[in-house]
């Protein structure tokens, strides 16, 4: 049994997760959303996955679900563990990982909240990170078409900000 299979075995026996080895150093794990925090705590504290490399959200709009992915790296095992879980698109709530990775998780979750509208319960600051004065829907959602948005909002529409440059009253 190689290191990748050992990692999967540890999680399946404890948390009932399903996993697969993609190639050397790549392990994908699917868990229930209620177990996410426990799985990540176990991964960090017992299995040595101390580095939260990245986290991401995929909008599966036809299934009505968001897929959250957490990419964890172990410096000892040299394995990238991706923990995946699905949440409902209408009620996008998930426990925050700030208690485990502090400011690292905080910044990542803040970005994902801004781009997808996922609520990370327990994150102290989910204020906008990149976008300024944006009051539309979270822009990385699949049902937001920015081409349509630009056409309706900016084509042949007077932009009040431009009055500063082009005169007017």
């Amino acid at each position: 049994m190689n290191a990748e299979e050992r990692v999967i075995g540890a999680f399946t026996s404890r948390f009932g997760a399903t996993g697969q080895v993609q190639r050397r150093g790549r392990v994908w794990l699917t868990v229930e959303k209620d177990r996410l925090l426990d799985v990540c705590r176990f991964a960090k504290e017992e299995m040595g996955f101390v580095h939260l490399s990245s986290l991401s959200v995929t909008d599966w709009v036809e299934d009505g679900e968001y897929e959250l992915t957490y990419h964890l790296w172990s410096y000892e095992e040299k394995i990238l563990l991706t923990v995946k879980t699905r949440i409902e698109r209408d009620k996008p709530e998930i426990p925050s990982l700030v208690s485990l990775w502090g400011e690292n998780a905080q910044a990542h979750e803040r970005e994902m909240h801004e781009m997808f509208g996922v609520d990370y319960i327990g994150n102290p600051d989910l204020s906008p990170l990149f976008l300024e004065e944006w009051d539309g829907p979270p822009p990385f959602r699949k049902d937001f078409d920015w081409r349509e948005y630009v056409r309706s909002e900016y084509y042949d529409v007077e932009n009040p900000r431009e009055r500063v440059y082009f005169g007017g009253d």
Binding site: S54, S56, T58, N104, A107, H108
Partner: peptide, 25 residues
């Protein structure tokens, strides 16, 4: 991170830049 659902374009791309964590936390 590249996700595809079988189309000609990627379904989702997540770019992890090293500066994201170096410049914020």
């Amino acid at each position: 991170y590249l996700v595809s659902n079988g189309g000609t374009s990627p379904y989702r791309v997540k770019i992890r830049g090293p500066s994201f964590l170096h410049m914020i936390p």
